[in-house]
Design a binder for these strands. Sequence first.
DNA 1: TCAGTATACGACCATTTCTGTCGGGATTTC
DNA 2: GAAATCCCGACAGAAATGGTCGTATACTGA
Lengths: 152, 152
Amino acid sequence: MLKLTKKADYGLMALKYLAEHPETPALSAKDVADAYGIPAQLLAKILQLLTRNGLLRSHAGMNGGYALARDARTISAYEVIHAIDGPFFITSCTKGAKSCELTPSCTIKEPLARVNDTIAGVLKSISIQDLTEHEQPAARAREAHGLVALTL
Amino acid sequence: MLKLTKKADYGLMALKYLAEHPETPALSAKDVADAYGIPAQLLAKILQLLTRNGLLRSHAGMNGGYALARDARTISAYEVIHAIDGPFFITSCTKGAKSCELTPSCTIKEPLARVNDTIAGVLKSISIQDLTEHEQPAARAREAHGLVALTL
DNA sequence: TCAGTATACGACCATTTCTGTCGGGATTTC
DNA sequence: GAAATCCCGACAGAAATGGTCGTATACTGA
């Protein structure tokens, strides 16, 4: 619970990998899959999703493959997760309206919606670029997170 | 994905309900289940878990039931979720060691671990008491979240 | 124009996780 | 002792997830 799906993980890993290889015009799904030992076909589907959502550019044919559609600094972890797993809500009673109206139940939803927003904010503040900076992303991160908290 | 299980939701709802009825010495699982339309037996198991983890006190027999083991202000959403769903990690590759060693894969884990901590911090900063304050928990929350971000 | 490499995408199955139920047992009160 | 209540393990159905397959389509280069 409160866990990223493997697909989202794979997606983040793939984007990170692409961000780390800016010199190559494109990398195939297989290239990335091999690099990480991820099932190639599965990763292919994930990359297709990311392409559909405008995070990647794809190119078929020989020497084709995928490349970031934008600068790694402008792609957030949130976007990636959202593209792969769809909109997320921390609460089980998903939408604002229906299911939970039955009972006066989800009085709990309102406070949790705030938590949800906070988490989304944190994920929005993390860029693919951040993922590639192995050492001491702490400073950047702290800064970003602080920003999020303040805007809540 | 990145969603609380229904069990965790139910647990939070139940604790909130208990926090809102401090006058009664104890409420049975059935009482709470009826109040929210939750399957009684399922909620029973959840309350038992919370009891085992020291968040509730239970009492068998007539007029028995459950009551908060501590002040609602000192019970965090994090504790509840942890008690019900076990330790959580945002990453799929759960433990620090095994599975991901196979490949040099999870270079992504380190940054996400930080995100994980941030989220855990947010959840730790939310108390059951906060859940009961319907209007304007914003101030408290903002304060608490800010604190979390700074301690990251 | 043909062969090879790649993406695109829908359908499908296997596995795991989650939800909810059942049944029997123990504890307390009246 | 009977009723209410907690305790707890086992299990079945449902849903989500992970992964595979097959086929169609697009591009490249010889």
